[in-house]
């Protein structure tokens, strides 16, 4: 093994991993689903779902709808049109 941790030196490595995994499991399987049921969070999620928004998109290609020049912007503003 390399890159040993100095955070919890007296606990055996396997136990450290089990402990960290248990914390993550509780957060993801219990805490986050509970937070998801809060009215404000639920409203936000519902709004995003209803509008087909993917807020975790890293770049525009991951969005549900490709952003294209809005129709209400006058054509003369665009130096050349893209796609049809």
């Amino acid at each position: 093994m390399t890159h040993p941790s100095g955070i919890l030196p007296k606990i055996p490595p396997g136990l450290r991993l089990a402990f960290a995994t248990a914390i993550l499991a509780v957060v993801w399987l219990v805490v986050l689903p509970s937070i998801g049921r809060y009215p404000a969070v639920e409203r936000h999620v519902r709004l995003m779902e209803s509008r087909d928004v993917n807020p975790s998109a890293m770049v525009y290609t991951e969005l549900e709808h490709l952003p294209l020049r809005p129709a209400w912007i006058e054509r003369h503003l665009v130096l050349w049109p893209t796609g049809n």
């Binding site: 093994m1 390399t2 890159h3 941790s5 955070i7 490595p13 450290r16 991993l17």
Partner: peptide, 13 residues
């Protein structure tokens, strides 16, 4: 989490 608990096994390097 893995790197700071059990470290990186040599076969993974």
């Amino acid at each position: 989490v893995i790197g700071n608990t059990i470290g990186v096994a040599r076969w993974l390097e």
